[in-house]
């Protein structure tokens, strides 16, 4: 994924630098049935936390835990109603320290 001349950190290392206070309720849900009809799947490319993954049955697998709460996914989503988006419960979710 990166050029040879510069060692790049793994995505896991990148994400482990961020604090997430995960709440048990998922603040974003994805309706995989609707996603099955989507041909563009911009969420997979654009989500900065890489939370959207194609599944073998043509749907989308989504994890809410390491979410930056940025809003990219619902903005680039082509399919009406595929992503229901809200903020996590107060005090939870991403916590930045030096950004």
């Amino acid at each position: 994924m990166s050029t040879d001349s510069y060692p790049e950190i793994s995505f896991e290392t990148r994400m482990s630098s961020v604090e997430f206070r995960v709440h048990e309720r998922a603040h974003i849900t994805v309706d995989s049935k609707i996603c099955a009809d989507c041909s563009t799947r911009g969420c997979i490319t654009a989500c900065p936390a890489n939370l959207f993954v194609s599944t073998a049955d043509g749907g989308i697998l989504f994890n809410y835990e390491l979410c930056f709460e940025c809003g990219t996914c619902y903005m680039v989503c082509n399919e009406e109603g595929a992503i229901s988006w809200s903020y996590p419960e107060g005090g939870h979710g991403v916590v930045f320290h030096s950004s």
């Binding site: 936390a49 930056f68 940025c70 990219t72 030096s98």
Partner: peptide, 9 residues
């Protein structure tokens, strides 16, 4: 060394 990664719209 990467201390924090962040993203925002």
């Amino acid at each position: 060394q990467v201390k924090e990664y962040s993203a925002h719209v």
